[in-house]
Structure formats: structure tokens, C-alpha cells
Design a protein around this nucleic acid. Structure first.
Lengths: 244, 244
DNA sequence: AGTGGTCCAATGGTCCAACCAATTTCTGCA
DNA sequence: TGCAGAAATTGGTTGGACCATTGGACCACT
């Protein structure tokens, strides 16, 4: 490691300065997401600040999802950082009941449709090939395990968001996705949840490959509609089973 | 094997526990945004944790914009808190300001269209009257001041989000709106920014009043399109003026 | 070669006690 | 009464200590 890329800090507003220094460091060392950054003790020593100050700064980055701290192991970069980053902490008041889930789905419907349309507009040949690869993997998993595989399914959707060229899609939908799964886990009833959505993955891909934005938007809307139906059926089951 | 059946165990989570306790406290005391919460020293003593731990927790809340710390004064609540909050740290990285603005607009386009459609589906007579009232106020302001009034314009849109029945629309778009204005202020060129969007406010309202979801969605898309055009013109101006 | 056990150094998490810096509140003098 | 300065309050920073977890090294046994 190049020790010269971590000069000491001077002014007040310490923890902010620490973050700035870290940005420079990450750039200088060309750290990629997943790599480990220096230990808190080393950072404190090099920057000539106390370890607590370093921790305050890292806590902020952790809250923004930029790094992940693993006790006993180290602190790892989770996303690319750049000097001109804009952080928009958005806290939504969302419950974990049926209504809240439907509301997150309405958001996802809107974004999913738009992302699919943008993707159809902007996808290069390589992009299309990449999406098809993810689709094949997903279909393969579906056939062997005879059911939706949330992991591979999610990969497919993420590929679409990425190709849309707007990282906000992935970030917002990922948060919705997480909220959804936090509640879902083992969703009480509806054994074949997501089954109905399966065929629409390929139709979405076909519309994207055909550079048909409106078609892609339409297919995405159909996909979300099937999920909403499943959710309603699950809610009905839940209602029945709780009446015992 | 189903990997989900073995979730990681959780032994220590001090600062998380502190935040939970704070949520309870805020609810118990019915603290409103702007009010001061206990000092770090008192929290540390009452919760039987060290002040450092309290500070880590408060740092997280500060990063999420839930709280504001003023040295020498105290820590103040900045937003309502609830037990089940969904935190969505958005990060706009890399690109120029123009790119960031276009990306927020793409999100807004998706949500605005969906909100308008939902609104057209669900609006009651009273809702429609309320929206029309906001529309009249906006048009009045437009005529007297001969230009878009962001204040009244925003009120009109918010009314639509509210009637959509999904509070997430208003929350997310509000965040985009704020981000947009942080950049915008009075940005260089394009004197009549937003002028072109004016007529679409009434057409959106008409489609809502007619209970025509698809029509409302279409008009909303047109409105955002005019804003995007304005933005592109502004970017062109900016490019020219920066070449001096 | 592989399996499990033990040890140990590294690392993040927590704690403590003090001091610094900004702010607010109180006090005493004019 | 008014107001400048002292004192108390509060968040910000420091340095040092110890705890809990991790992951690798080493070893005994199969």
C-alpha cells in the first residue's frame, strides 16, 4: 500500500474530512467494491485523528450502504465512491402489513415498467446478450427446481435495471425488494408463489430484444400484475388461517 | 438445502438496540419534529451503555436525516420516526449535474404517470373537486405572474399523489423534487422554465375527472417530457456559456 | 488427504475518563 | 434595567483499555 496517499488531516469538521480523505484514498488505490480498506487503527494513525473519529465517519458510510463492517475481519467497500456523490437519505414510513406490501408493489410496477421501456431503448447488442444469459439461467433454475428461484430471478431483473442506464432504478427497487422479502420469508400459503410470473420474463426480454419500449412496458406491467394477484391470494389465505 | 432455513444468529447489536429504545422513547413522549431529545450523557446513563455507543446510533440517525445535532445546544428531532421505517439511501454517483437531473426525472416520470393513473381510478368526487381547486389556484398564479409558480404547481401535484392512495408516491417524488431544486435554484438560462408544461396540468386533471387512467398516464408523460426538453435546452445553454 | 481441535493475532465493537469547542444560561456590575 | 463576562451545558474529539468475532496456522488423529 502506498502510504503517501493517506496524508494527515488538519481542520475541524474532522469526520467529514476523514471521509474526503477516504475518497481520495479509494481513488488513489483504485479500490473496487468488495475489497478491504485499511483498518480503523491504521486510518486513525495515518490521518492523525482518534479511532473514534474514524469510526464516526465509517458509521456514516455504513449507513449510506457504501461500506460493510465485519467484526474480526475488516471493513469492505460495497459500492463505487466518487468525489461528486449525492446522497439522498430517503426514509419511508412503511409497515409490514398487506397494505404496505401492495403499496411497495405499486411503486415497483411503475419503476419496473419504465426501466423495461428505457432498457428496450438503450440496450446494445452486448446488453441484450447479457440479459438473455441471465434469463437462460433463471429458466434453467425454474425447470430443475420446478419453481421460481428468487435469486436468479432477481439477477435477471437487476440486469434490466443496469441496462436502463439509470442506477436509481436499481437502488429504489432493491429497497422495495428487501422490504418485500423481510416480510415474506416463508409466505404462509401460496406454495407456488411467483409461478404465474414466469412466462413474462421471456416476453419482456423479447420486447427488449426487438427494441420495442412500449411492448416491454406492457409485458412488465403484466408480470407485476401476476405478483399482485399472488399477494392477494396469500392475504386471503392468511385471513382464513387466522380465523381459527 | 434451503439456505433460508438457517439465518445468521444475532448476539450483539448494541447501537441498534439504542435506536429501538429511542424510537420507543420518542413515541412515549410524543416528541414532534423540532423538539430536543435527551443529551447523549443522559441517554448513555439511562440505557446503561457508553456514550460512544449512543453517539454511533445518533450518527446513523443523523445520516438518515432523522435528527440534527448542534454542538453546545443539543440533538433535535428532524422528522417523524416510527418503528417500521424503510431506509433508502440513494446515491447518485459519477455523472455531471445534468446527468443526475435527468436520472431523477426518469424516476419522476415513472412515478408521476403511475400516480396519475391510480388517481384516475380511485378519485372520489370530493377528491376531484380538491384537485380542481388546486389547479385553479395554480392557473391563477400562472396568469398573474406570467410564469410557472413552483409552489402552487407542487401543491397541485401533491394533491394527485395523495388521492392515489399510496403515500410512497408523495414521499419518493418529494425527495426527487428536493434533489432537483438543490441543483436548480435559478440555474443559468431558460428563463421560462416550465412554461411548456403548463397546459398539461389541465389535461391531466380532465383525464382524472373522466376516470380515464390510461389517458391520465399519457398526459402525465407528456408533461414530464416538456420538463426534460427544458432541461436539455438549459444544458445546451450551460455548455455554450461555459465555453467563454 | 481429510477432519476436527486448539491456539493466536488481527479487527471491529464497546467502554471509560478526560478535555475541547460551541452554545446557552446565569450573574453581577454599571 | 441592560449587558458583558463568567459558568454551566452539550456535542465533538482524544487516547487508552478490554471484549467478541474472525480467520489462519498448527497439530493430532483418522
Amino acid at each position: 500500500m502506498d502510504q503517501n496517499s493517506l496524508p494527515p488531516i488538519q481542520t475541524t469538521a474532522r469526520d467529514d474530512a476523514v471521509l474526503k480523505a477516504l475518497v481520495s484514498f479509494v481513488r488513489a488505490e483504485a479500490l473496487q467494491p468488495g475489497e478491504r480498506l485499511p483498518t480503523e487503527r491504521i486510518l486513525a494513525e495515518r490521518l492523525k485523528v482518534s479511532r473514534n473519529t474514524v469510526r464516526e465517519a465509517l458509521t456514516r458510510w455504513e449507513g449510506l450502504g457504501l461500506v460493510e463492517r465485519r467484526q474480526g475481519s475488516g471493513t469492505y467497500l460495497k459500492a463505487a465512491v466518487s468525489p461528486d456523490m449525492l446522497h439522498l437519505p430517503l426514509t419511508l414510513a412503511g409497515g409490514s402489513d398487506f397494505t404496505s406490501l401492495m403499496q411497495t408493489l405499486e411503486i415497483r410496477r411503475a419503476l419496473e415498467a419504465e426501466a423495461a421501456a428505457l432498457c428496450a431503448e438503450r440496450a446494445s447488442r452486448a446488453d441484450i446478450a447479457e440479459i438473455e444469459r441471465k434469463l437462460d439461467i433463471m429458466e434453467q433454475a425454474f425447470r430443475t427446481r420446478d419453481g421460481m428461484s428468487s435469486e436468479e430471478d432477481w439477477e435477471f431483473h437487476q440486469a434490466i435495471y443496469r441496462v436502463s442506464g439509470n442506477p436509481l432504478f436499481e437502488q429504489i427497487i432493491a429497497a422495495m425488494h428487501e422490504l418485500f422479502h423481510r416480510f415474506w420469508e416463508h409466505p404462509l400459503g401460496v406454495r407456488d408463489f411467483g409461478h404465474a410470473s414466469f412466462p413474462y420474463h421471456r416476453t419482456i426480454f423479447e420486447r427488449i430484444a426487438a427494441r420495442d419500449p412500449e411492448g416491454a412496458r406492457g409485458e412488465a406491467l403484466k408480470l407485476i400484475a401476476t405478483v399482485e394477484d399472488d399477494l392477494k391470494r396469500g392475504a386471503a389465505n392468511l385471513k382464513l388461517s387466522s380465523q381459527t
